[in-house]
């Protein structure tokens, strides 16, 4: 589904954000990307739907080359859902309108069709009573669930999560993770940048550990938590699992 091969990315002439990154996510697979801050994990996931350009290597998404100038990027992006750290709901639109906008403008669905789909998804994330509210009237956890519903409204073939719980108060993290766990169990292809190792050990198939722009470790979940081979991954795990 997602093939990343030998991707290099520089910010400016001197800072290399990604070094020769190669990995893949198969259909139905859940891959968790973790690593210290500044390790390039967010950058990598943003390269997958070309939100960030990269200079070398290639990424193939469902058979379509992302970094081919001929690729219709808006069309390709519409097929991959993305959830951001800071939710990024559109503040001037009601919750239901947030879910309808791209369905109507990008997929060309009729308003009624979009509304029906939106209502169904809001119900699914437990927010159907909030459809007529504005994003600023919802809590962080609720906003993030809306953001997930907004991405799902496009019927994506895969979902990208960029630290979806990092900006949330602790008591709101689980309501978002619950939605993500359900999604994973239904067989959604997911690439998730997160520090939530509980989530990783529950639903991930593979865990990728990144440091300084490199993929240091790319292992099955059991291997990663059982015996990470690299020193750096071991150190990272000991730090975040010790509390």
């Amino acid at each position: 589904m997602i093939e990343i091969s030998h991707v290099d990315k520089w910010y400016g002439p001197s800072f290399q954000a990604l070094r020769d990154c190669t990995t893949s996510v198969a259909k139905g697979e859940v891959v968790v990307v973790c690593g210290p801050s500044g390790s390039g994990k967010s950058t990598l996931i943003k390269c997958v739907n070309a939100l960030e350009p990269f200079q070398a290597g290639e990424i193939i998404l469902d058979g379509i080359k992302v970094n081919d100038p001929k690729t219709d990027l808006p069309k390709l992006r519409a097929r991959v859902g993305m959830v951001f750290q800071h939710f990024e709901l559109f503040p001037h639109l009601k919750i239901i309108e947030n879910l309808c906008l791209a369905q109507e403008k990008v997929l060309g669905r009729s308003h009624d069709e979009a509304m029906a789909k939106a209502a169904k998804l809001l119900d699914r994330v437990g927010l159907k009573d909030h459809a007529r509210k504005y994003p600023a009237e919802l809590s962080g956890g609720q906003q993030q669930r809306v953001a997930i519903a907004r991405a799902l409204a496009m019927d994506p073939i895969a979902m990208l999560f960029d630290e979806p719980t990092s900006a949330l108060d602790p008591e709101m993290i689980s309501e978002v993770l619950d939605v993500m766990v359900d999604l994973a169990r239904e067989g959604m292809t997911m690439m998730v940048v997160t520090h939530e190792m509980g989530f990783a050990s529950k639903v991930a198939h593979r865990v990728i550990f990144m440091d300084q722009g490199e993929i240091v470790e790319d292992a099955l979940k059991t291997d990663f938590f059982g015996s990470p081979r690299s020193d750096r991954a071991q150190k990272f795990l000991s730090k975040i699992l010790s509390h």
Partner: peptide
């Protein structure tokens, strides 16, 4: 506006004009 707003719209498949 937060940079993420443009990213979120782009990620949904909206064109720059949209």
């Amino acid at each position: 506006l937060p940079r993420g707003q443009k990213m979120a719209a782009t990620a949904l498949g909206l064109t720059t004009a949209q």
